[in-house]
Write a protein that binds this DNA or RNA. Structure first.
Length: 618
DNA sequence: CAATCGTGCGCG
DNA sequence: AAAGCGCGCACGATTG
């Protein structure tokens, strides 16, 4: 084994040669922080099984290293979770063209498996594939002890196995025909890196206005709740006799109460109180409480409290802490491949920003483009239902999409036997819902395996009425029922399900067994429901990832003044120079349609594009 | 006191 | 009845 530390500029020529003569190079970095904006690049490791170069970046100087790093664009860079390393490369102006990410390969090969059966870290992969143990703890000592012998050795080990790991993973990728989706994910790393690097900008003034309003409303609600128990002899016994340590009223008035009568965030305390009022609920969630809202004035207040407390804790003043002091942007952490193939997002989660209602409008309006720019957004219309339609080949659905009519309304008229102008009339069994609203619940719910119990529960109608709705739904569109059962059967007979061609991503079902008699019936049902959902949800993910790759390539190839700001499941939000918006709007729409046509071959694609001064949902 | 689980709710 | 799917987060309750 040859592993060496590179400290001198002259030594870099050897590294350069290594990069030039190799089609693939293993690549890793060590840094003093997670983001390049508040730390330094300490080491760059390049190598393969036989040779590793550990480059002491600070000693050699980043400027002296740039020519070497620039050579990377002519090779295929292999790395484990390259989203991290590429962010540092981008910071230093280094472009990397082709990558193979062993972390993403492992994510793809094990999608859907649970914690026990899924080991994604480099140590775990190297251990599982080669039986070699890497010691991560020593590597992290680089900050304290610099390039000591053992640090160098372990830095080198982090690139040593990458090319072998890729080969072993490729065997499996070929075995399971995952080449196409692996390629998609490898192309997508760069895009996701940029979405973290150029994360959204928040108008703090607008955001502050919003949370001031939220805290005021929450405070009032707490006050009203407290007044109810203070003036009701029956309820006084539920008041906490001791101060609830660590709990305070929101100090929206700079006033902090010294004790909390009842902790309105405690389901146990709320449940006791409700039972004391002879209100029989099994939980304190809104869905249950809403049925009892007329029993006592406290019930609607409890619903209100939960809602506003959520807004206050998740989207209140804490949210502003995520604004990076140097960049002024939010730099979230995306996870590239969850079970279905979708993204997830954390610190903060930008995929669950409120978007329904007046307050949500104000929250979204706080997401603004760079000064002088505009937001150009595009979202797919009914993508998941179009996926089902594509494979069900259901005449009613295909003609509705072909004629660009509203699917929910269309189905509504058939299933409830009403005219088109009646779809927004109240639904007789539950008058606060319209027919179309009910239909929407049915369309999504039933497509993913909802039973009459849940539907009855959701619509607050008897189970037998729900059963009738389900029956007429599937009688009206029998081919949808058929394709759903085909997907369910595929999953239970094989133990996995695939998304639509050409990507054909796999999701595994860890509870499955070849001998189905060994699988509990309820687990079989769960696999069936998950499979029914994975095809449309995962195919949608494949599509939006392809679209995002096309969009970023277009931006890069033409130097367009555009940044991808957010992507929420079926929506792409971009930050675009004002003068370019009209032109960009057309390009964005075209590329999103182009991506979708990879999957939807006979079903029309519809994309809605908007230009605005801030994030908005149309 | 930290780790873990459950509840409830935000999004598509 | 574990009887739509996919997530992350805040908070309370429980555990060791």
């Amino acid at each position: 084994m040859e592993c060496q530390v590179t400290r001198m500029k002259e030594q870099l020529e050897e590294v350069n040669n290594f990069i030039r003569i190799n089609e693939f190079v293993g690549f890793d970095t060590e840094t003093s922080s997670m983001l390049p904006f508040d730390g330094k690049l300490l080491a760059v490791q390049i190598g393969d099984f036989n040779t590793q170069y550990v480059i002491d970046v600070q000693t050699i100087g980043i400027d002296n290293l740039l020519p070497t790093l620039n050579l990377l664009k002519d090779t295929i860079v292999i790395g484990h979770n390259l989203k991290f390393d590429l962010k540092w490369m981008h910071y230093h102006g280094i472009k990397v063209d082709k990558v193979f990410d062993t972390f993403l390969a492992e994510c793809l090969l094990t999608a859907g498996l649970d914690k026990e059966n899924r080991h994604l870290s480099l140590q775990a992969c190297v251990s599982n594939y080669f039986g070699v143990r890497l010691d991560k703890s020593i590597r992290s000592k680089i900050i304290y002890e610099g390039f000591s012998d053992r640090v160098i050795r372990y830095c080198a080990e982090d690139v040593k196995y990458l090319s072998l790991l890729r080969k072993r993973q490729l065997e499996k990728i070929e075995e399971w025909e995952l080449e196409k989706v692996m390629d998609l994910e490898n192309r997508f790393v760069k895009v996701l890196m940029l979405m973290e690097y150029y994360g959204p900008i928040i108008d703090t003034k607008k955001w502050t206005e919003v949370y001031t309003l939220v805290e005021k409303t929450l405070g009032k609600t707490v006050e009203q709740l407290n007044n109810i128990i203070l003036h009701n002899d029956k309820l006084k016994k539920y008041i906490n006799t001791e101060p609830q340590l660590g709990l305070e009223f929101p100090d929206f008035n700079n006033k902090v109460a010294d004790k909390v009568l009842i902790n309105w965030s405690s389901p146990i305390q709320k449940l006791k109180l409700l039972h004391g009022l002879d209100i029989n609920v099994k939980s304190t969630e809104a869905k249950d409480l809403i049925r009892k809202r007329d029993k006592h004035p406290i019930v609607p207040l409890l619903i209100k409290y939960s809602k506003w407390n959520k807004l206050s804790t998740s989207f209140g003043r804490n949210f502003l802490k995520f604004i990076h002091p140097v960049t002024g942007r939010i730099h979230p952490d995306y996870f590239q491949i969850i079970a279905s193939g979708r993204l997830s997002c954390s610190k903060p989660n930008l995929l669950n920003i409120p978007s329904h209602g007046d307050l949500a409008k104000k929250i979204q309006a706080s997401f603004i483009p760079k000064y002088g720019n505009k937001i150009v957004g595009g979202d797919y219309s009914n993508f998941e239902l179009r996926i089902i339609s594509e494979f069900a080949d259901e005449p009613l659905w295909t003609t509705t999409f072909a004629e660009d009519r509203d699917l929910h309304s269309e189905l509504c008229t058939r299933i409830f036997n009403i005219r088109e102008d009646q779809v927004n009339d109240p639904f007789p069994l539950k008058p606060d819902f319209t027919y179309r609203h009910v239909q929407k619940i049915i369309d999504f719910g039933l497509s993913y395996g909802m039973t009459e119990f849940k539907l009855g529960d959701l619509l607050d109608i008897p189970t037998r009425e729900a059963r009738k709705l389900i029956n007429s739904f599937f009688i009206t569109i029998p081919r949808v029922k058929k394709i759903l059962s085909i997907w369910a059967y595929a999953a239970t007979s094989r133990g996995y399900i695939r998304t639509a061609p050409p990507y054909r991503r796999i999701r595994w079902f860890p509870n499955w067994n070849e001998d189905l008699s060994k699988v509990e019936p309820y687990l079989i049902s769960a696999i069936e429901r998950e499979a029914k959902n994975t095809v449309p949800q995962g195919s949608n993910a494949d599509c939006i990832k392809e679209a995002l790759c096309l969009v970023q390539d277009e931006i890069d190839n033409n130097n367009y003044p555009v940044k991808i700001m957010l992507s929420i499941y079926d929506e792409i939000v971009t930050d675009c120079k004002k003068e370019f918006t009209e032109e960009w709007k057309v390009i964005l729409e075209t590329l999103m349609i182009k991506a979708a046509k990879e999957i939807l071959k006979i079903t029309p694609v519809k994309v809605n594009v908007t230009i605005s001064d801030h994030w908005i949902k149309d």
